[in-house]
Nucleic acid binder design. Structure first.
Length: 239
DNA sequence: GCGACAG
DNA sequence: ATCTTGTCGC
């Protein structure tokens, strides 16, 4: 990605300053503090324009039998077109800890996204955004560090609560945390279990839901994310 | 008893 | 995440 990827745009949107652990502190206390500060930022909202936007999706898979190795796949798409695809291998440090996933997967996801060579308009990750105890899940964290609008997708909410949407593709229902909408349950296909579209860096639940539906025709989850995950698994298979 | 805070 | 088992649709 561009040179400024190393100088996160977070700094432009508040009193953010990097901690001793950088943007991906390994120390839990330090990461929690960073999450609290990220969660308070209110960067200008981004909306996909009428012109076609480039979306990047990235996913990471881990070594089945521990080992600390991991692989990440990333794709850059515009509409139904695939513009770029990359897979990278790397080492992962700590174990997975609920609410602290960014410490483990953030750096490798950034590496994969930067390998695409071009900056997208928005980033999609299988992760939570503002639906997080400290309002800064991995999707928001990564978007802030990269200075790119981001959205997240998960099977279920992390901390937010709300009703189930109607049964038809396109039906949505707000998920609220601390009185504000942080995500939306979205029926991406008629008759299937809804997914959760997460507002993250510079995005709303509405935008997250719209982008998710746009990348989802027939399947329950958006094809760019499935493709990114496939690339990561493929790379793992090669060693 | 297990999980109930993403993967 | 990954694995297993169960269900559903083509």
């Amino acid at each position: 990605m561009p040179p400024d990827a190393a100088t996160p745009a977070v700094a432009d949107h508040g009193e953010m300053s990097r901690t001793a652990g950088g943007w991906w502190p390994a120390d839990a206390e330090e990461l929690q503090d960073l999450q609290r500060r990220l969660g308070l930022l209110r960067p200008p909202p981004w909306h996909p324009g009428t012109s076609p936007h480039d979306l990047a999706a990235a996913a990471v898979v881990h070594d089945p039998d521990e080992g600390g190795r991991a692989w990440a796949g990333a794709v850059l798409v515009r509409g139904r077109r695939m513009l770029a695809a990359q897979a990278v291998a790397g080492a992962v440090h700590g174990p997975y800890l609920p609410t602290l996933r960014s410490a483990r997967d953030g750096p490798l996801l950034v590496t994969a996204l930067e390998a695409l060579g071009r900056r997208p308009d928005v980033v999609l990750l299988a992760a939570a955004g503002r639906d997080h105890p400290r309002h800064a899940g991995l999707a928001l964290h990564l978007g802030a560090v990269l200075g790119l609008p981001s959205i997240g997708l998960t099977d279920r909410p992390l901390s937010a609560t709300g009703p189930v949407p109607g049964p038809v593709r396109g039906d949505t229902a707000a998920l609220v945390l601390d009185g504000v909408e942080v995500a939306r349950r979205v029926r991406t296909a008629t008759g299937v279990r809804p997914v959760v579209a997460h507002a993250a860096w510079r995005t709303t639940g509405e935008v997250a839901a719209a982008l998710l539906l746009a990348g989802t025709r027939g399947a329950r989850t958006p094809w760019p994310l499935r493709e990114a995950r496939r690339l990561a698994r493929e790379a793992r298979g090669r060693g």
